[in-house]
């Protein structure tokens, strides 16, 4: 499994960061508990945004995709949840570049997909502002590309 880091500062934007590859036969064994935990925390805090940073995940298998879908389902079917999920992707990873836009159908307006190149946000797929922009992670004056 990839290394996982979940930001834990109360009241701050929740950022889940993966680094490595997702290739287990059942990634749900470790991924789903993370999803449930982060989701519960976002609900409890009344968070408006949660970020999932997979820019350093070089490969994920189909079983991992099911977990992404599960997160979107969890988010959308919980009436208490108000947050938008922002998935931060690396443009150079084809599995993200080609595959992630397909998730839009399941996240609706509550899924934002950001694509980065060399650490810079180059385009956003989704409605409204991306999490990076809301949280001030984009440098002042930095221009954002359009998808």
């Amino acid at each position: 499994m990839p290394s996982v880091h979940v930001s834990d500062e109360a009241g701050q934007l929740i950022v889940v960061t993966f680094d490595g590859i997702m290739r287990e036969a059942n990634p749900s064994e470790w991924f789903v508990p993370i999803i449930r935990s982060v989701h519960s925390r976002a609900v409890a805090q009344g968070s408006s945004d949660v970020a999932l940073d997979i820019r350093r995940v070089t490969y994920a298998n189909a079983a991992a995709w099911k977990c992404f879908v599960f997160w979107l389902k969890t988010m959308r079917e919980d009436a208490r949840a108000r947050y938008c999920l922002c998935i931060r992707c690396e443009e150079a990873h084809q599995w993200q570049e080609i595959g992630m836009p397909a998730l839009r159908a399941f996240g609706g307006h509550r899924l934002v997909i950001e694509f980065y190149r060399d650490g810079q946000l180059v385009r956003t797929s989704g409605t409204g502002l991306g999490v990076a922009e809301k949280s001030g992670e984009l440098r002042k004056g930095e221009r954002r590309g359009k998808s």
């Binding site: 991924f31 789903v32 079983a63 599960f70 397909a102 998730l103 159908a105 399941f106």
Partner: peptide, 15 residues
């Protein structure tokens, strides 16, 4: 692919 993801979405879970 979208149809397959929909089946996953509608299914019992990621397992």
């Amino acid at each position: 692919y979208t149809a397959a993801l929909q089946q996953v979405y509608d299914g019992s879970g990621p397992d």
